Simulated assay, not measured.
Amino acid sequence: MKSILLVCNEGMSTGFLCNKINAAAKARGIAVTAWAIPESALEGRYQEADVILVGPQIAYLTASIQQRVNHSRPVEAINPVHFGRINADAILDRALALITAPLQ
């Protein structure tokens, strides 16, 4: 099972998106779980994730988050258009691509 962590300012705006990502993965028969936390809770939880996606509202923190997780897993800001349209399939596809890509 792959784990996708969505991080945003308070963890609320990404909660709905997580439900959509989980439903999209289930419909496609992919073993994935997506979950959301506020950025302030990152240190205690990031080890559970295979990839970290950052909400567009805090995309400016992406580099800082990469440092905070010691570049131990992929970290990327969510495409704001996909986020705004709640395009769970596109976000899921990007997360899966990041999980399988070599770390940089």
Rank of each mutant, 00 (worst) to 15 (best):
M1R: 13
M1F: 04
I4K: 02
L6I: 15
C8Y: 00
E10N: 13
G11Y: 05
S13P: 10
T14V: 02
G15H: 01
G15P: 00
F16Y: 15
F16D: 02
F16H: 13
L17H: 10
L17M: 14
N19T: 15
K20R: 15
I21A: 10
A23C: 06
A23S: 15
A23P: 04
A25R: 03
A27P: 14
R28P: 13
G29H: 03
I30C: 11
T33P: 00
T33R: 14
A34M: 05
A36T: 02
I37K: 00
I37V: 10
S40C: 05
A41S: 14
E43T: 12
G44I: 11
G44D: 07
Y46G: 02
E48N: 12
D50T: 10
V51P: 02
I52D: 04
L53T: 08
V54G: 08
G55D: 10
G55M: 02
P56S: 06
A59I: 01
Y60M: 06
Y60T: 04
L61C: 12
T62Y: 01
I65L: 09
Q66A: 12
R68Q: 12
V69L: 00
V69T: 04
N70G: 07
H71C: 00
R73Y: 11
V75F: 04
A77F: 08
A77W: 08
A77V: 11
P80D: 04
P80A: 01
P80L: 08
I86M: 15
I86F: 15
N87K: 01
N87A: 15
A88P: 02
A88T: 05
A97M: 08
I99L: 03
I99C: 07
A101E: 06
P102M: 01
P102G: 06
